[in-house]
Design a protein around this nucleic acid. Structure first.
Lengths: 318, 318
DNA sequence: ATGAAAGCGCTAACAC
DNA sequence: GTGTTAGCGCTTTCAT
């Protein structure tokens, strides 16, 4: 591929002039601009991006740190990020950690070596103490609330959301309420779910907490565990609509009526829940992703709260 | 951030020596290597990636072109790509087109401006004639079979797969077979599904073909259309397990028995189908993604076929 | 084994 | 308006 020097030579101008037309600067005579453009077209020339990034000290690329890409929730966040990035002509790298703290730091290092202008952390494995130093090299935005002033946040008040949901169930007359979670206790949202439960109902009966739930299949397993207990829960709060759908399915196979025999509520308002009339808590993850993107490219440390919505559908009794 | 000159100066060596230790070259005395390393650590130095890419003329980054990221099938492909990329220390950019041909070309241009070493096309909007010229600038691998010699392919023989599946249904005694598709007729797999159907059953009754199916919700809609027909199909081939699950759900709500009253088979072996004992055709999309990645970084134009598996579970009669 | 120096392809300050 | 030139931060001959 030709370079800018060659274009300049062929057009009979200096490289600065070529650079100017490339970057749509004013103060270029129409005749020269046209001449340069013609040569550019003829030679099928495109500026080398590494050279531009090197001198501009920015890449118009951002990264998204997530544990897995094949997960509904992270996929929604990513979707939000991508929507905005396409509009604003940014590129996005997907940085999957599998909850490996080492790898996470390696990704953060892409700010330092100027490969990325910013990074969105959708879920982290490191402590903030380990992460914050990297803000020196680029913008870091996270999808949970932290009071670290160096970190931008696009977040949902999960604790309030969980409390609200459990309270709703309680208000509907349920005292035997089970719930499902994804990872074990080290995860942020898991911790908050547990705290919220305790806040509303007090102690958690060990058998009312089902771990490692991600898919509909896990929902079936969870229901299998829960619905054969001597003291069967009368309501379940699932950590996702897929999981809720699995529970629904299993309950129906047992001839249980929803919501009369079992009330059910999921999360994230996924299509899977719509036709089943499952209630759900929509944390608006795509919107969180969009907002996180906006923060990161504005180099903002703002804390932006995204509202959640509890959608009560037929799977909850009146 | 410090640069390589500064490190050289502080370590009392030349920049070449610093570069050598950075790149683990031989022929550096242990004493100097140690001295340089110490300064690097002290200064917390990391080489600028744009400068390295510029001179090396490669980025160790690849792109994945897909229409949407929030879609099970593309997500599986992406998952395969990411698995391998993490192992081999490559970065991957997600390039969502929404089937916009212009945008697709813009993405392909990232090969030309040396931002990406290669691109994986999981689904395309342009003709091969428009795409092939970009192979001059980087490797292009696709997830469908094309005989263009410049393009590497990691693909499943979809036509054979679809014919096999329809034939299986026919062998089980079904002559009233409906099916669902995603996009309209311009999509490659849709076209092949239609051709396969005609090959096995002849003409397609218009009402046995349901379009725009992506999620479980769409499956419910499809079932609603199909199961109230005067001549109800006795089997449905869904273009995904989520869609199949929706159909299952609706059929059950009508008290139809699966498979006695309605045989059902989906695609992609998703968790949603497992607990429902839905039969499925596993096109091994994650494996396709992995293989596509391997081709692209080997700069290979190979054509690699990935086998598909028909998993017969309870949703099909004997 | 080590260093000097020539780029890689581009932008922008400065001079005219 | 336009050109000259000094970098940006690095790798890699080519000497020594």
């Amino acid at each position: 591929m030709a370079n800018i020097d060659e274009i300049a030579k062929l057009a009979g101008v200096s490289v600065s002039t070529v650079s100017r037309v490339l970057n749509h600067h004013p103060y270029v005579s129409e005749s020269k601009r046209a001449a340069v453009q013609r040569v550019i077209d003829e030679m099928d020339y495109t500026p080398n991006r590494s050279a531009v990034d090197l001198i501009r000290k920015e890449t118009r690329s951002i990264g998204v740190i997530l544990p897995f890409n094949n997960n509904q929730a992270f996929d929604q966040l990513l979707h939000g990020v991508l929507s905005r990035s396409v509009e604003l002509d940014y590129s996005v790298m997907v940085l999957p950690t599998r909850y490996d703290a080492e790898k996470e730091l390696k990704y953060l290092n892409m700010l330092k070596n100027k490969r990325l202008d910013g990074i969105i952390i959708t879920s982290r494995s490191n402590t903030w103490d380990a992460i914050v130093p990297y803000t020196k090299y680029g913008t870091i935005v996270t999808c949970e609330l932290t009071d670290r002033p160096e970190i931008g946040c696009a977040y949902v008040d999960r604790y309030a959301s969980y409390v609200d949901t459990f309270q709703l169930l309680k208000d509907k007359g349920h005292s035997l309420v089970a719930f499902t979670i994804a990872r074990g206790e080290e995860s942020n949202s898991t911790q908050l779910t547990i705290k919220a439960y305790q806040q509303v109902f007090g102690d958690i009966p060990e058998e009312y907490l089902v771990r490692d739930c991600y898919s509909m299949d896990d929902g079936l397993r969870a229901a299998q565990e829960l619905l054969h207990l001597k003291v069967r829960p009368t309501a379940v709060y699932a950590n996702g609509d897929e999981v809720a759908a699995g529970i629904y399915q299993y309950a129906r196979s047992l001839q249980l009526r929803i919501p009369e025999d079992l009330a059910l509520i999921g999360q994230e308002n996924q299509p899977v829940g719509m036709g089943l009339h499952l209630s759900t808590v929509d944390h608006q993850l795509a919107k969180v992703g969009e907002k996180a993107f906006d923060l990161v490219i504005k180099n903002s440390r703002g804390k932006v709260e995204i509202p959640y919505h509890i959608l009560v559908r037929q799977s909850i009794n009146d």
